[in-house]
Design a protein around this nucleic acid. Structure first.
Length: 239
DNA sequence: ACCCAGGGTCATA
DNA sequence: TATGACCATGGG
């Protein structure tokens, strides 16, 4: 049984607030560069693809060791892949980083890109080799401060159980569904929402054995309701 | 010995 | 259009 419910603005707010109460403020994307963290976020967004963040930090540290963390400097490294060896598939990611850095320089950097609309910027990012839906949104959200819902695998798992996602997993469909009821201007909301979903997916809502007894979302969650009352034919749809 | 990790591309049917 | 192989390192 899956999600037949469509989220409402109030429902999404409650979802967010329940997680926030349980896990606290996350302020998610970690950065070493206090002065100018934004380019580091671009780099991290590619390096972290299917790779644990601890390894990404090591790879970023290696890049720093080798020179300034700028697009031009990265493009000049003789063996970029070797520098990021610790970040999983490093040869693949070296090509992706080069594509991203070339794009960044060609477009004139953050100053010029900030003027772009979110939709245009997303489309441009998606045209790059190695930038898919999730990485594009992570960049839009964390490097450009745009209000975007990151519909990653954790989000699908939790929202399917919660009752807000069903059928085949379609990234854009879920993103639009959430953004349709989320605050249009509030990037911090989406920042926290994504971070809280990750925290919850790793802490309670595991793939195999979700810990529904200790779950902060249980009162609104279709899966938890089904656990509590297996015989109820049709659970009441809470807002 | 598996499975997963802050994914995406490409070849195949 | 929908799966599967592949990338490649580390940690549980």
């Amino acid at each position: 049984m899956g999600g037949r419910d469509t989220p409402s603005a109030a429902g999404l707010r409650r979802f967010h607030d329940d997680l926030l109460a349980a896990y606290g403020c996350q302020r998610w994307w970690p950065t070493q560069d206090e002065a100018n963290p934004r380019f580091e976020i671009l780099v991290g967004a590619v390096l972290t693809q299917h790779t644990a963040w601890t390894n990404v930090e090591i790879a970023i540290a290696a890049l720093r060791e080798a020179g300034p963390l700028t697009a031009r400097a990265l493009l000049e490294h003789a063996d970029l892949a070797e520098l990021i060896r610790r970040a999983g598939p490093h040869r693949v990611k070296a090509r992706r980083l080069q594509a991203l850095c070339t794009w960044f320089v060609d477009r004139g950097g953050f100053q010029a890109l900030e003027a772009w609309s979110t939709e245009t910027l997303r489309a441009d990012l998606l045209s790059l080799h190695g930038i898919g839906f999730e990485t594009a949104d992570v960049i839009l959200l964390y490097a450009f401060g745009r209000p975007c819902f990151v519909a990653d695998a954790y989000a699908f798992r939790i929202l399917e159980r919660y009752g807000w996602s069903d059928g085949p997993r379609n990234y854009e469909r879920l993103r639009r569904r959430i953004e349709a009821v989320g605050p249009a201007e509030d990037a911090i909301f989406y920042d926290e929402l994504h971070a809280l979903i990750v925290a919850h997916a790793r802490g309670r809502c595991h793939k195999r054995a979700p810990d529904c007894a200790a779950c902060a979302l249980a009162p609104g969650c279709a899966h938890a309701r089904a656990q509590a009352q297996p015989n109820t034919p049709r659970a009441e749809a809470g807002r």
